[in-house]
Design a protein around this nucleic acid. Structure first.
Lengths: 213, 213
DNA sequence: TTATAAAAAGTGGTCAGACCACTTTTTGAC
DNA sequence: GTCAAAAAGTGGTCTGACCACTTTTTATAA
């Protein structure tokens, strides 16, 4: 017998089933979920149990509920989560640092991958960043990193990065400063030319800059 | 008026109040919380509302509940946020290759960190691995990697690695072959001496070996 | 026909009560 | 003093009810 699953909490199973349902019905971000009453009937459980599962997911920011409107699959998981986490979990600096370091682990690896792959180096998107930097003089830091992660091609790493950026990326979701402009340009140019170590060096300089903000 | 807060979700306020209560009563990790019925009375809300808040905190791993026993404040850092998120992330990410690559991202970074930190290089655990390899001629691959991840000191990275290893690490949870013995020894020795690149090279050779198994 | 307001239906928010399963505490017989 | 039975305490779940709010439908007036 599978003793590990047979004693699982029921409301956790509901969470699982909800995940399955979302997958089966191909519910996209922002779209509506079945109502609580419908869910309780379809899953064969009481409405209160459904609500316990939904409230958990809401606290995680995975769904959004509108009084009288319905329940919706969240487009961006962030809202209360950061608040709750900082309230209970991320109280000590060590945890915050770990989130930042782990996010950077994925960013550095993406830079390495791109610097070692010619087909990724020559993508037009990097040039478009240069153009934007020259014309507007600045660029959204998070946009640059997101593009790097996307380009690197590891979708799982990208998903993890999204989660980490949701906690830690506030300092990055802004336009770059004058100092950063140079570091970003150096990093992108090195990446394009396949200079892995130079790209990483410029990235680390950039991140030092970010820390002081 | 503070219109932003006056319309907040009630169950979120209960979460807040619970936190206050924990602080006020100086409830330590592992200690018991008031029962659901008592809480609903003290907070002036229905028991189901209390439960919705408690279930949310349980999903985050901040509290533990024992059927018939009570609700207890979880010991710190036992939160299963990563586990929950990985449930949602890994569920629809079927690419085994991405899981493997991402797991290796974390392993490589851990090797880098140790190779650059003298206090980590000189830990006796590495020597114990050498002794075990010489006496028994083999060692559990997963044990070596786990120790590396633990030693690197990034608890979040470690948590993510555990999840990835649970999906992908079956091939690693075994004793090393004769070929691998050399690669592991080279990797560990290079790490001890601070030879980052050599350690990574040996690691990558090792992983190539793993793939063919 | 179109526009608008009223009514109805749908949905989340909350509460109260009931019953079950399990654990802890108390009781009482030995 | 021991130990088993009974009682009390507690979490787990379901049902039904009512409220507040939103969306849809319907009815009325322009």
């Amino acid at each position: 017998m599978d003793k590990k699953t047979e004693q699982k909490k029921v409301f956790l199973e509901i969470v699982q089933q909800l995940r399955q349902l979302i997958k089966m019905e191909k519910i996209q971000a922002g779209e509506k979920l079945p109502s609580e009453r419908v869910l309780s009937e379809r899953l064969g459980v009481g409405r209160s149990s459904v609500r316990e599962a939904l409230r958990s997911l809401e606290l995680l920011g995975l769904i959004e509920t509108r009084h009288g409107g319905g329940t919706f699959l969240a487009s961006t998981h962030k809202h209360q989560l950061v608040e709750i986490l900082s309230m209970f979990i991320l109280e000590d600096e060590k945890s915050k640092k770990d989130v930042e370091l782990t996010r950077q682990i994925h960013e550095k690896e993406a830079i390495r991958v791109i610097s070692c792959t010619e087909t990724l180096q020559t993508l037009p998107v990097w040039d478009s960043f240069f153009v934007k930097l020259e014309i507007e003089g600045t660029i959204n830091c998070l946009d640059v990193l997101r593009e790097i992660l996307i380009t690197s091609g590891n979708r799982l790493s990208l998903k993890i990065w999204f989660q980490l950026a949701a906690y830690d990326g506030d300092r990055l979701n802004r336009n770059s400063t004058e100092d950063e402009k140079l570091q970003i340009q150096t990093m992108l140019k090195s990446m394009q030319l396949g200079y892995e170590r130079e790209a990483l060096k410029a990235y680390e300089q950039w991140m030092k800059n970010v820390q002081s903000i």
